[in-house]
Computed example of a mutant assay.
Amino acid sequence: MTARFEPARLLEALFPLLIVIAAMVWAPLAQADLPGIPAFTVEPGAGEGQQEYSVTLQILALMTALTFLPAMLMMMTSFTRIIIVFSILRQALGLQSAPSNQILLGLALFLTIFIMKPVLEEANRVGLQPYLQEEMTSLEAVEAASEPFKKFMLAQTRESDLGLFMRMADEQFVSPEDVTFWVLLPAFVTSELKTAFQIGFILFIPFLIIDMVVASVLMAMGMMMLSPIIISLPFKIMLFVLVDGWALIMGTLAASYGL
C-alpha cells in the first residue's frame, strides 16, 4: 500500500517542540509587568463611555521573539549535524544542485523528527499535557518540558566543549545537570559541528580515491585537457548506488544518536 503524506501528522509531531520552545521564550516575558499600548477605541453608542482595548507589550515582545524560533529549532535538535553531513556528501559526489537544497532540507527535517521523537514525546508527557490539564503553572511546565531536551543535549556534548564555555562564562557547576541552557546550547552546537565534519571527512575518502585514480589514468593516457570530474562523476554515483549509500548515511546518522 502506498504511503501518503499527511500534514496533520507532521504538525502533530512538531507541535510539542514548538510549544516548548515558544514557552521558553515566553517564560521570561511573562514575569515582567509590562504596560499596555492602545490598539483601537470602541464607542458603543451616544451617551456611553468609550471602551479602550489594549495590546500588551508582552504579546508584542513575544511575537518579536518568535522570529528566533527557527534558529532555536535547529540549534536544539539533531538538524545541524544532519544538514551539514548531507551538504558535504553532495560536495563529495561532485554534484552542484542534485539533490536540491529543498530536498536536502526536507529530508533533514523528517530525519530530525524521527531522531527527536522520544525527546518530543517525553517533553509532551511531562510538560505540555500537565499544563493543558491545569496541573502545573506555565513556568513549571517549561522547566519540566526542557529537561528531556537538556538530557539529549548533554548526551551529545563533549566535555571539552562544555568546559570551554563554562570558562568563558566564568561559571562553575557541581554536576552537568546544573548547567544552564545559555552555556549548554553553544557547547552542544560546537560538538555537533565537530561530529558532522568528522562524518563528512570519512565520507570524502572513497570519492577522493576515485578522483585520484581517474586523474592518474587520464594523465597516463595523455588526456590532460579532459576534466577528471566529468569522468569520475558516473563512477562515484554508481558506487554510491551500489552500496545503498542513502540508507547507510541515514542509518549512520541515526546510530550516532544512539538509535
Results as ranks from 00 to 15, higher is better:
Leu11Ala: 12
Leu11Val: 14
Ala13Thr: 13
Ala13His: 10
Ala13Cys: 05
Leu14Gln: 11
Phe15Met: 09
Pro16His: 10
Asp33His: 02
Pro35Trp: 10
Gly36Leu: 01
Glu43Asp: 09
Gly45Arg: 14
Glu48Leu: 07
Tyr53Trp: 13
Leu57Pro: 01
Ala61Ile: 04
Thr64Leu: 14
Ala65Leu: 14
Leu69Gly: 10
Leu69Asp: 14
Met72Phe: 13
Met72Tyr: 09
Met76Asn: 02
Met76Gln: 11
Phe79Gly: 04
Val85Pro: 07
Phe86Val: 12
Ser87Ile: 10
Ile88Tyr: 00
Ile88His: 07
Leu89Ala: 10
Gly94Pro: 09
Ala98Asp: 04
Ser100Ile: 04
Gly106Leu: 12
Leu109Lys: 05
Phe110Met: 10
Thr112Cys: 06
Thr112Ile: 04
Glu121Tyr: 01
Val126Ala: 11
Gln133Trp: 08
Met136His: 03
Met136Arg: 06
Thr137Lys: 02
Ser138Lys: 06
Leu139Ile: 15
Leu139Ala: 14
Ala141Trp: 07
Glu143Trp: 00
Ala145Val: 11
Pro148Leu: 05
Phe149Ser: 08
Lys151Val: 01
Phe152Cys: 03
Phe152Arg: 06
Leu154Trp: 11
Ala155Lys: 11
Thr157Lys: 01
Glu159Tyr: 01
Gly163Phe: 05
Met166Ala: 14
Met168Asn: 09
Ala169Gln: 13
Asp170Phe: 06
Asp170Tyr: 04
Glu177Ser: 12
Leu185Glu: 10
Pro186Cys: 15
Ser191Trp: 00
Ser191Gln: 04
Gln198Arg: 14
Ile199Leu: 04
Leu203Tyr: 05
Leu203Phe: 09
Met212Ile: 14
Met212Leu: 15
Val214Glu: 06
Met221Gly: 00
Ser227Tyr: 03
Pro228Met: 08
Ile231Ala: 08
Ile237Asn: 13
Phe240Thr: 07
Phe240Arg: 06
Phe240Asp: 08
Leu242Trp: 12
Leu248Lys: 13
Ile249Asp: 02
Met250Val: 15
Thr252Gly: 13
Ala254Thr: 07
Tyr257Ser: 05
